[in-house]
């Protein structure tokens, strides 16, 4: 059935006059008329087509990304995920439960329960390690990157920042860089190059740090080329 002429006239009028033609259509007697809706779509084209195209481009980008194979390969992907998240998982498990009970709170967990929680936390951290250890080919310990870098401290909740420590295989003439970042990824401290596997931040630096930081340690070659890197999160437990 052709669209009645009075509907067409109405749609043209609201497209010209109403601040929000669609709201005007929904408030009218023709709210359920699909043909009116189609007519209004045809009349409203200024800028819409181009913008709809941009949104479609965003959607297409997401679809392509979700289907993409990437360039790292499955094993390297696993290593990157474990390196980033296993310390956070372990720290989260060791942190809870932490707060002192109030008088009205339930009794603290029994020794057996606390033991179970601790073992669960250790098991959770171990998952991250075992998960990427199930590989067929032989390589230097892949969990720790090409230089075997592993950040040892600070890790998770700490009473004070103290000495930063790490472990790695360093090439001849190589060294390390330490970067301290805030939660937004901004560089707030560190040291550009150091040969030792530990560093104690000077008080004039650490005094201005927030309660939660990220620490990135890089292994550098003799020419300051980047060989390996590891990053962990740490936070002050009482503040």
């Amino acid at each position: 059935m052709p669209h009645p002429s009075q509907h067409e006239a109405f749609v043209r009028r609201i497209a010209d006059e109403a601040e929000d033609p669609w709201e005007a259509l929904l408030a009218s007697e023709y709210a359920e008329c699909d043909a009116c809706g189609e007519a209004l779509e045809r009349l409203q084209t200024d800028g819409v087509t181009e913008l709809a195209g941009k949104v479609e481009a965003v959607a297409r980008d997401e679809r392509e990304s979700l289907r993409a194979r990437g360039t790292f390969g499955p094993e390297r992907e696993k290593e990157l995920v474990a390196r980033a998240l296993a310390p956070l998982v372990a720290a989260a498990q060791s942190e809870s439960p932490r707060s002192a009970p109030s008088p009205s709170a339930s009794p603290p967990p029994s020794l057996a329960r606390r033991h179970l929680l601790l073992m669960s936390g250790l098991a959770a951290a171990a998952v991250g390690v075992v998960w990427i250890a199930t590989r067929p080919e032989e390589q230097p310990d892949p969990r720790l990157g090409p230089a075997g870098l592993r950040v040892l401290a600070p890790l998770g909740a700490v009473a004070q920042w103290g000495e930063f420590r790490w472990d790695a295989r360093v090439p001849t003439g190589g060294g390390f860089a330490v970067e301290v970042l805030d939660e937004h990824g901004a560089l707030i401290g560190g040291v550009e190059r150091i040969e030792a596997t530990s560093w104690r931040p000077p008080p004039e630096q650490s005094a201005s740090w927030p309660a939660r930081i990220r620490v990135r340690v890089r292994v550098l070659g003799a020419a300051n080329e980047r060989i390996d890197a590891a990053e962990i999160e740490a936070w002050l437990s009482e503040r």
Binding site: S65, L66, A68, G70, F72, P74, L80, V81
Partner: peptide, 10 residues
């Protein structure tokens, strides 16, 4: 979450 390095490298 392996999708992160995968999508990023793509």
């Amino acid at each position: 979450l392996r999708c992160v390095p995968r999508m990023l490298s793509h």
